[in-house]
Write a protein that binds this DNA or RNA. Sequence first.
DNA 1: CGAACGGTTGATCAAGATCAACGTCGGTGG
DNA 2: CCACCGACGTTGATCTTGATCAACCGTTCG
Lengths: 248, 248
Amino acid sequence: MPQEHAEVFSRNCGECPIRHRAVCARCEPDELAELDMIKYYRSFEAGQTIIWSGDQMDFVGSVVSGIATLTQTMEDGRTQMVGLLLPSDFVGRPGRGAAAYDVVATSDLVMCCFRKAPFEEMMGRTPHIAQRLLEMTLDELDAAREWMLVLGRKTAREKIASLLSIIARRNATLNMQGPKGQMVFDLPLTREAMADYLGLTLETVSRQVSALKRDGVIELKGKRHVTVPDFERLLDEAGDDSDGGMLA
Amino acid sequence: MPQEHAEVFSRNCGECPIRHRAVCARCEPDELAELDMIKYYRSFEAGQTIIWSGDQMDFVGSVVSGIATLTQTMEDGRTQMVGLLLPSDFVGRPGRGAAAYDVVATSDLVMCCFRKAPFEEMMGRTPHIAQRLLEMTLDELDAAREWMLVLGRKTAREKIASLLSIIARRNATLNMQGPKGQMVFDLPLTREAMADYLGLTLETVSRQVSALKRDGVIELKGKRHVTVPDFERLLDEAGDDSDGGMLA
DNA sequence: CGAACGGTTGATCAAGATCAACGTCGGTGG
DNA sequence: CCACCGACGTTGATCTTGATCAACCGTTCG
């Protein structure tokens, strides 16, 4: 049986770790106060399904800590990840009743949830929220399109390198470092989840990770702890042009 | 040399064929009048590149008539389509200076362009525009995610069937018919463009189209004119569950 | 301890890529 | 008028990448 998270979170938005990146990033104190009235926290453990595709959704919200995946599954069991949710990412689609994808917690996870109806109502008259959500959605769309190139045209090796560089870069921006030189991080995904991300089998993922290690593109400590000695080299293996998608 | 379009378009938004579906769908008469002051029409011929990836963009806009594609290209020439733009679809990303993708007119095309800076300024104080753009962006994100499943997990035959069903469905909603029973339409894409859409080679596209024809899933008159005798059958071949993605 | 889970590695197979030839249609210029 | 060319499409033969099937390892957890 799931044991309740012992950890206690401050309800105070001022202390919120994702305050400056989430949907509420642009909100004024009075707007935060209003959001506060319709918000609540929920904890999930690793492996738990947060939302089932097709379910009626009565909340939207932000990932506060932990990692979740958005996945689509065909009747015969083939599954494709279509979103990777990190802290500050938004869950749920205002204006739609039913969830379109499964949302699964990959690690232990905390969400800041807003009751859906009041949130939608508030969004309608609070440009600060609507604007921020638009911005975040446009970013997600860009990420999805980058991902489509990976899925449609890259080789298995390039796919793995692409995924590693994406995780490395996200990690760097989270720690507010530039993405260059040596980088170290932990893989937040199992080999199977990586396969579902990249449209591969887990065997192919395992082989290509080993190959990148053998060729010195990455170093591994255990199965998950990755060191990238030369980020440019990794980008090269990913087939990305060197600028790495820096957009004005 | 490109010959100028002889056709003349009414500047009048009241007669605009995409009025009810575009970014301006929710605008009041006074807002339309303001948009009118920053708008202009541009025509492109089939094959013409509208925007090059990396270019500075000085406008955003809506496709009024015709079809365009968003594509990404790797240094070695591999290309992946990441968006298919039909009438009423929006082009450009407010808040970003440089284009992230190539935009190419697949057919002769007319765009209703807005000068970027004034449009962004106006969006900041016109919720009707921002809200509609958010809604359209969320729809595009959903489409991109559906597409990711196609790219990552479907077989070549399923990919072709998926593309045909998407085009058939879009066509049906444009003509305001329900997507069922017999459907007839023209393919707006060459075999090569279909391949770039689906992450296949043009040879595989050709073979699978022939196979679907041989198996009676579709009928062809010429290379482009398609008849789908049984839409359910097509959905089945696409591996989609029967509801066809009808979401509340 | 044994089972479950995550991961690695090997042998074999098949879907789709690649290379190549050919067909059709619609201009265009001699 | 016809010959030629280029764009688009089809089909065949062969090759390669990644899938599939299978065995096995190490860790963790009842």
